[in-house]
Design a binder for these strands. Structure first.
Lengths: 333, 333
DNA sequence: CTGAAAGCGCTTACAG
DNA sequence: CTGAAAGCGCTTACAG
């Protein structure tokens, strides 16, 4: 069962290889009966065009590169499912590049991507630094490769299209919710490292807090569970707090564990909310209220957008914002 | 900044393209000074061999296919990190195929993989059915593509090498631990669908239970949180239970939530243990005891093994079992 | 609607 | 150690 080539097909169908190629790629240019004969032979022989030869001759790879800084984030995996499903529909293959550091990707990766001749690039991250943005611009402009940012937004430019939710609005809404409950000392627990989307969540938080003439209080923690515990204990010994909005569900749950250890009741004494609606949120007790981020859809829509770009269609929207929901469970009242 | 070709390099270095090719791929066949001149030009021009041309001419792709049934499982993502890190070391690119159904992958995928000319395949799953195994055997034998199973074991044959932990032993050890605590009514909570590795965990459980002359009790649940709650409530109303070993951390946590709602104390009344050592285990209260599975390492070692296979090296071990640990936290005593 | 032929950018015997 | 040339398996103007 060694691989059939286009010559084998052409021979068996008694046509030239050019006709076989057309029957596959431009069926309308081939007489129906010829086409069917060719297609039947293809079926019989289990012929599949060699991707390298095709790529070399056509200068198109029908492959997209997915750049991921760190696969282990739960959201990345789910986003991949959305991407893969749409990629399949449009017949694109996925080349996966996991970037090792969180710095700007190195020259090496760039060269690899260029050499791989990908037709498009999806950049998955909730962070994007100016340096990384420059890197992407270089690829885009020097090599004419379309790029879509997935789950992040670059604030200063819409040169590279993006798909996400409106994180600013989500941050605003959740904060507003706690304010409406009568909370006065609402903290946003964000991360030490500056993530673009966490920044947006903070902006939304600040807007709501200001509108209500409250005092903004942002606490920055590492994402590491083991460190969080001490950190929270220390911090809230001296601080009044009756509301917590964490930028990630897992941080919210971490906080709840500390609160419970200190005999603080949720939601009686404190309201708590997270972001993402992960399994953590459902498994926590009380069940965590949070912003639901349609992460699968973000991946799927991002990939769909990229196919349009690769087809040189005009985008009616360069910053796509999908709908989100506030899921109110047991940690708010 | 359009892409330089091998001709550009050859011209600038005043050698033939054959020499450029050799300088890259068989440096020892080129006189040192020529080689250096060529390499310098390559550097200057930012030349990177076109992957398609290279693949077509050499019949090697330096690409591996990673087959994943469902990316959203936390373990898959972490395994990908291990795979990607080693792939980078050996200069392999990763083509990602997310299989949609959990049936045997369709003919389409097979053809795609073959057309992509991947040099090797990594199959990531904790399940493998005879049908899927046949599918993999077909690829392996018909097209001579090496394959490694990652995080699963096929019981009836070691024709396809695998990397995992000794799940049977892990199941045995954790059960033994609960028995040593004096537990008499230990349940294993497994899944409705038959996963290969869950099967192994069960086998280990059964061995320990038999050795202690206790009665084995296996309960099967769906993995879905919402369903678990009712299911557990119903089931344990009529059943005595003082020990639970769940095949996944999240199921264990799910169970703990139900137990707590029924005022059952952990670990005073019931010991609970999970598998994997995910973030769930650390975030749960009490903190969950579980089997730690070195999932990153499984991915890394799997990829390393595959590189050996692709180099036609002889494997000293076709079933690699990595070390695991029992992490005893607060849900056991 | 179909075929002959050039070309995509490499690798690799084969000579020298 | 190096070069000329064939070939990898396709696509795509160009003729007809």
């Amino acid at each position: 069962m060694s691989k059939a080539t286009i010559y084998d097909v052409a021979g068996a169908a008694r046509v030239s290889l050019a006709t076989v190629s057309r029957a596959i790629n431009n069926p309308e240019k081939v007489k129906p009966e010829t086409r069917e004969r060719v297609l039947r032979v293809i079926e019989e022989l289990g012929y599949k065009p060699n991707a390298f030869a095709k790529g070399l001759a056509s200068r198109k790879s029908t492959t997209v590169a997915v750049l991921v800084p760190d696969m282990s984030r739960a959201s990345m995996a789910e986003m991949m499912n959305g991407i893969a499903d749409i990629a399949r529909v449009y017949k694109y293959s996925i080349l996966l590049y996991i970037l090792d550091s969180e710095d700007a990707p190195e020259e090496d990766i760039l060269k690899e991507i260029v050499a791989a001749q990908v037709d498009g690039i999806l950049y998955l991250n909730d962070e994007i630094t100016p340096k990384q943005f420059e890197f992407l611009r270089t690829i885009k402009n020097s090599y004419q490769i379309p790029i879509v940012l997935t789950n992040t937004i670059y604030p200063d430019s819409d040169e590279i299209p993006s798909v996400s939710i409106d994180y600013e609005k989500a941050g605003y809404e959740m904060t507003k919710k706690l304010i409406d409950e009568g909370r006065k000392n609402i903290y946003m627990v964000s991360t030490v490292r500056k993530y673009m989307v966490n920044d947006l969540k903070e902006t939304g938080y600040l807007r709501a807090i200001e509108e209500a003439s409250l005092t903004p209080k942002i606490m920055r923690t590492s994402g590491r569970i083991s460190i969080n515990t001490e950190h929270f204990n220390e911090y809230f010994k001296d601080h009044k707090v009756d509301g917590i909005i964490a930028v990630r569900d897992s941080i919210a749950v971490s906080f709840m564990n500390v609160a419970r250890a200190n005999h603080v009741h949720i939601p009686e004494n404190i309201s708590v909310a997270g972001f993402q609606n992960t399994k953590y949120a459902q498994l926590a007790r009380p069940k965590l209220s949070c912003v639901d981020v349609p992460i699968y859809d973000i991946g799927a829509v991002g990939m769909r957008l990229l196919t349009k770009l690769m087809n040189e269609e005009v985008l009616e929207e360069r910053r796509v914002m999908l709908e989100h929901n506030l899921i109110l469970r047991e940690t708010t009242r």
